[in-house]
Amino acid sequence: MKIVIIGGERVPYFLAKKLIAEGYNVYFVNKDEALCNEYSRTLNAVIVNGDGSSKKTLDEIEIGPDDIIVLLTERDRKNFFIARLVQEYYGVRHVVTLLNNSENEDIFTRFGIRTLKVTDLIMSNIEPLLFENQVVSELESETSNRGATVVRVSIDWGSKYARLPISRLELPEDVLIAGIVRKDQYIIPKGDTVLEPGDDLIVICKIGREMEVLSHFSE
């Protein structure tokens, strides 16, 4: 069984390195001649300089049904075409492809091609950040001209408030916890919400009392 990586630039290098270290037989197919020359010096893999969507190139590698094909070109239509070529011509069962446009997932799934949804992956990571920023900036714009401000406080491992419920924080007067940012979530706190180390608190207080709030939490 061999693993054939088609297309891509830097990702295949590290992927190939890892796979080779684990003892797999790796093939690397790319149109870019300079890249192929570089990898032929640095990677212990079979490097094929050619167009992966051409049957002639694929024939050279002698792909069999048990081989795993990894498609990393930047065009879904090209990845799809190569996937279908290796399925139809060599009976390949396992094809994994980079999915550039997530709306195309259905068509890959329909033909049994596994997909890596890059856009979705990045979106799912930045979405909480976007949401959190939006919440904070909205809070700031709501409070700024009305004598209040927003302060962000981190609860670290040594904090005496870690693992305490909000109701037992003994907050100074005119200080309110508007939210807790915990990993990917934004939590709207209630009295019985328990703080965890690593939490970030979004705190609203009167302008001029920011230091008081910060020192309260760092005691």
């Binding site: 969507s53 065009r75 799809f80 279908r84 259905d106």
Partner: peptide, 15 residues
């Protein structure tokens, strides 16, 4: 481009 033709054909038929 055959990859484009194939992709558009399949999306047209299946989707």
């Amino acid at each position: 481009d055959d990859a484009t033709n194939y992709f558009v054909s399949v999306v047209g038929a299946k989707i």
